[in-house]
Write a protein that binds this DNA or RNA. Structure first.
Lengths: 105, 105
DNA sequence: TTCATTCATCAAAAAAATTTGATTTAAAAA
DNA sequence: TTTTTAAATCAAATTTTTTTGATGAATGAA
């Protein structure tokens, strides 16, 4: 026989994954990255480095945050890494009004 | 005769207001507030205090961040303050998939 | 007027996120 | 093999955000 979960008076839904996603977008450098990937499609880190004008370790740091939040895909080929927008995830969070800025459609 | 703006090689669009908006959503307490206002409509601070279970100064701090980002309206009547969702702003940022969680429709 | 209530604000402390520069890893080229 | 290149990771320093508890402002009631 299953126990019913005990609901405390002020317990709330768990928004942890939404927090992680909004945090990922809450930084100008990461929005610039999202914008470039939205406009350019799949791009390798070395090209991004030039476009966003960020030192490599900083760019890596920010890409990881976007990746962990699910907003971008990643593929490695040899020594190159390519990143591109995960449209499903982006569309599930962002308004279509943001089309072409941070989401491709 | 007007000067054309000088565009630097790696200048980017200014995303400052988007950053402010995503920052406002990038906190669990503030998402809980958004969720309550989405479900309950216009609510006074004293009632919110009970619902979100936050000390008054903390709640004030978080409401101000949501307010400055444009996500909520505010009205003061006597000593009471009421807050409610600014649907236009919320809808311009958040996907309709988030209906009923952080946007009312 | 005095008192109580609601809410905003403040400054200091604490916690979390970002930057920085160096190092490491892995793959490809010489 | 050795060297080079691309990218990830790391620890320390810095910056930003949040928390905390106290104080202040404004309103209305006694």
């Amino acid at each position: 026989m299953k126990e019913l979960p005990i609901i405390q008076p002020n317990e709330h839904i768990d928004f942890a994954s939404y927090v992680q996603q909004f945090k990922a977008l809450a930084d100008e450098k990461r929005l610039i990255i999202m914008n470039i990937l939205t406009r350019n499609g799949k791009t390798c880190v070395c090209d991004l480095e030039v476009e966003v004008n960020l030192p490599q370790s900083k760019l890596s740091y920010h890409l990881k945050i976007l990746y962990k939040a699910g907003f971008i895909h990643k593929e490695t080929k040899g020594t190159w890494s390519y990143y591109w927008i995960n449209e499903d995830v982006v569309n599930s969070i962002l308004s279509e009004d943001l089309c072409c800025l941070f989401r491709p459609n």
